[in-house]
Amino acid sequence: MSSDRSQRAPVGLKVAAAAGLLFLHLPILIIFVYAFTTEEKSYVWPPPGFTTQWFAVTWNRPDVWEALTLSVQVAAISTVIALVLGTLCAAAISGTSFFGRETISLLVILPIALPGIITGIALRSAFSLAEIPFSFWTIVLGHATFCVVVVYNNAVARFRRTSGSMIEASMDLGADAFQTFRHVILPNIGTALVAGGMLAFALSFDEVIVTTFTAGQQQTLPIWMLEELVRPRQRPVTNVVAMVVVIVTFLPILAAYYLTRDGDQIAGAGK
């Protein structure tokens, strides 16, 4: 249904689509306005005045920095683990057909298909049964598990486009398995892996539901935000953090889009 030569979109459809998109975007734009408000105690609209002072205040808040650092560390390590596991899985699944292939792709998708709270409480109860104390690594364990699918989705789409005969061609021309990996496979799936990694990073950076169950006393940035949402203490600081989070997550999404736009789409359903 890509072409429609004779017809133009009905006005009603245009209005409904535009309204739908506005509904998706306006609330995010409002965050940007609130980051500059002079009001401290309430969420009053319109803002009584504008200031950039809250950026400086936020900058000097050690708790925000600690949460941000933890989030970045967790996201970075989870992304690396997800990249390794997701790529291995995608390579194995797309290269050959074997018994149990469907089961394995289901296994990869399951952590994202079931509600996050189930993943979270399952991990928590497993940690408590195995008497594993909460730590940085318990957070990473959870995050890496649901990040695998994002890398996997991106890599599998690209592996499908990288024809099997290209690998044979490389071997035929005298390249052994390692040379083929370095000179043919890696350059061809590289951008898909970078895109998958970025999405995995964004996913981990933003994750809160599983994290509340696996974090113990440590605060990632989303957990910090959640605290502020439940018990607002520093509204202006929260406003600024919210805006920064929006910008920080937009960048990898845009980058991932540009890396994969010809051909496969970023796996939006993978979140």
Binding site: L21, L24, H25, P27, I28, I30, I31, Y34, Y43, W45, L199, A202, D206, V208, P222, M225, L226, L229, T238, A242, V245, V246, T249, F250, I253, L254, Y257, I266, G268, K271
Partner: peptide, 20 residues
């Protein structure tokens, strides 16, 4: 992108926006 950006942007920020 108009669909992807809101889809991928922070869950908590979106909830926070509605609180505002």
């Amino acid at each position: 992108l108009g669909v992807m950006l809101p889809l991928w942007s922070s869950y908590l920020v979106k909830v926070y926006a509605w609180k505002l």
